[in-house]
């Protein structure tokens, strides 16, 4: 066999084997990965809207918001994913808001790459807890450490004002989007999927 024929043959065989094993591996891994994603979302909703029993996914345009119901079927509030740039890279948050859209019920940082020891403190509960019960009208704001925050303001982390301000900005942007979707009224809101939850706290 000539050398070029052998080159083609070897590369083809290796490529086919590689492709087949990747298809097999992907088939194996895909359901697990989807499950982890769903669980991560569910856990985050649980943290920002305590007492949630059932979650409905509402899709509208590009936006996905989660309607959270308690065990009696009453609307507890809405949760949404929001993301934007922080000091060093993308910050992704799960935010919970009361049904009247005027008060936050909680905030959880899902992804961030802020400076360890400074900006990374946005993931600590002392920072996240400030968003629980925070007024969100007309918008969320922040003050530097040492000053007294208004009911709609949080205290920024010392030495990490940009990271703190980024979180506030991302929350506000997400909130505006959710207000737009919810105010557009239920007829347009389409419930496409309900995430099943085993119910109750772990």
């Amino acid at each position: 066999m000539s050398v070029s024929a052998r080159m083609m043959l070897v590369l083809t065989v290796v490529g086919v084997f590689s492709g087949l094993s990747l298809v097999y591996m992907d088939k194996y891994a895909e359901p697990y990965i989807a499950l982890h994603k769903k669980e991560a979302v569910r856990e985050a909703i649980d943290k920002v809207l305590p007492g949630v029993d059932k979650v409905e996914e509402v899709h509208r345009d590009e936006t996905v918001i989660y309607r959270a119901l308690d065990s009696s079927g009453k609307l507890l509030g809405y949760a949404f994913l929001a993301e934007g740039p922080g000091y060093q890279g993308k910050i992704q948050l799960m935010v919970g808001v009361a049904p009247d859209l005027r008060r936050l019920t909680g905030m959880e940082v899902l992804e961030s790459v802020e400076t360890p020891g400074l900006g990374a403190k946005i993931t600590e509960s002392s920072f996240e807890e400030q968003f629980r019960g925070l007024e969100a009208v007309p918008a969320v704001g922040y003050v530097k450490a040492g000053r007294k925050p208004a009911p709609n303001e949080i205290t920024a982390i010392t030495g990490a004002t940009i990271s703190s301000a980024s979180v506030v900005r991302i929350v506000n942007e997400g909130l505006n989007e959710v207000r737009r979707v919810v105010r557009a009224g239920p007829p347009d809101c389409e419930t496409e999927a309900t995430i099943k939850w085993k119910g109750g706290k772990k």
């Binding site: 990747l22 891994a29 990965i33 982890h36």
Partner: peptide, 9 residues
């Protein structure tokens, strides 16, 4: 890719 998918799963 196999290792990456396995870790993700």
């Amino acid at each position: 890719t196999v290792a990456d998918l396995f870790l993700k799963a």
